[in-house]
Nucleic acid binder design. Structure first.
Length: 203
DNA sequence: TATAAGATCGACT
DNA sequence: GTCGATCTTATAT
């Protein structure tokens, strides 16, 4: 996967990333995951994006070059990972929502002891991030650098009719834009959950 | 300095 | 289906 292929609108990059393989290499071993569910986030006009209100220390990498990893901490206990798209100061990213472990299954099981089936190992953004062993230090790594501990490997494009689209999960705003994309039929797709307790403001 | 809310998960009723 | 855990980040005084 090249930087140029990712330096496009996140809605395009998201569909392009479906089916691609994300590989992480650590001291513990390697894990590779085939992406089956992603979501697009855009700065500026997207109120659900972390960049909506401008550049901050947290979302800084989203303003940088495409192909870098954006890792952030949420809900006091989970990490989520994004792939930065667009560039030239225009922020955008693709949230990695779910995938199928294609290599390093044993290590993924160790990292995800609560998963009852292999399909659950990376079924959800925080689960996927945990299965890959990604943490705060991985924020900003270049996924297109062969020497990087985390990389995206290109895959053959999926047939258009196998890609489904729908509203994003867990966001309380902009629910009318179908910027969540997933591979039809994969057992690892996390499925739709409306914004829960944290997403609801006053009644 | 203080406070509110969050791109979730898993346990429990 | 509903709720609690847990803490960082951003925004308001």
């Amino acid at each position: 996967m090249t930087r140029a292929e990712l330096a496009v609108d996140p809605v395009v990059a998201a569909q392009r990333l479906l089916g691609c393989v994300l590989e992480s290499r650590t001291d513990e071993g390697n894990v590779a995951i085939r992406l089956v569910e992603v979501e697009a986030y855009r700065g500026g006009d997207d109120p659900a994006s972390h960049c909506y209100r401008g550049r901050t220390p947290r979302n800084d990498v989203m303003f940088g070059p495409a192909g870098h990893l954006y890792v952030y901490f949420v809900y006091g206990m989970h990490f989520c990972a994004n792939i930065v798209s667009l560039t030239d100061g225009v922020p955008g990213a693709v949230l990695l929502r779910a995938g199928e472990v294609v290599s390093g299954v044993e290590l993924a099981r160790l990292r995800r002891p609560t998963a009852r089936t292999d399909a659950e190992l990376a079924k959800g953004p925080a689960r996927l991030t945990t299965a890959l062993g990604l943490h705060r230090p991985h924020n900003g790594v270049d996924l297109t650098d062969p020497a990087s501990p985390v990389r995206v490997l290109a895959a053959d494009p999926l047939p258009a009719d196998s890609i489904q689209a729908g509203p994003r999960v867990g966001v309380a705003v902009a629910m009318d834009v179908p910027w969540r994309f997933w591979v039809d039929g994969s057992p690892a797709v996390s499925g739709y959950r409306r914004g829960g307790k944290a997403a609801r403001t006053r009644t």
